[in-house]
């Protein structure tokens, strides 16, 4: 099964952490965004199956991206990967439509488990 993936994080290191946690079957079709605005622009011009999304970012944060996805009715599975682990934040992102909240730094086994749980593996 092939899925196109967008990774949005202002940190190059964090983007690499997600990339290297992806199983080979999913790592062929990946694009990167460095802030929420870039991500929304990519989402309006291209189709993606999965978005890995950071929250604390400059220009437009992850909550702004989730709002944008909701307003545009974009069909995409969003996995939030953030250091902001407050329970209220986790509830907020799930209520905005994210499939799951993953704590930073992301662990390969956790990411794979979530992808399996949501039918991408």
């Amino acid at each position: 099964m092939s899925s196109s993936i967008l990774i949005c994080d202002d940190s190059n290191l964090a983007r690499k952490q997600v990339l290297r946690s992806l199983p080979d079957i999913l790592s062929a079709d990946v694009q990167l965004a460095t802030n929420g605005q870039e991500a929304l622009e990519l989402l309006t011009s291209q189709n993606f199956d999965i978005l890995f999304l950071d929250l604390t970012m400059p220009i437009l944060d992850g909550l702004g991206v989730l709002q944008g996805i909701k307003e545009n009715n974009t069909n995409i599975a969003v996995f939030v990967i953030s250091a902001d682990i407050q329970p209220e934040m986790q509830s907020k992102v799930l209520s905005l439509g994210a499939k799951a909240f993953l704590k930073k730094p992301v662990k390969k086994e956790v990411l794979i488990e979530q992808l399996q749980q949501h039918g991408f593996l």
Binding site: S11, N12, L13, A14, T56, S82, A83, D84, I85, Q86, P87, E88, K104, P105
Partner: peptide, 19 residues
């Protein structure tokens, strides 16, 4: 970038404690 990401993770957990 690396330092910023380490700080982000630490800041996230400190803010969770504060919250």
């Amino acid at each position: 970038d690396c330092l910023q990401e380490l700080i982000n993770v630490a800041m996230g957990q400190a803010s969770d404690q504060l919250a």
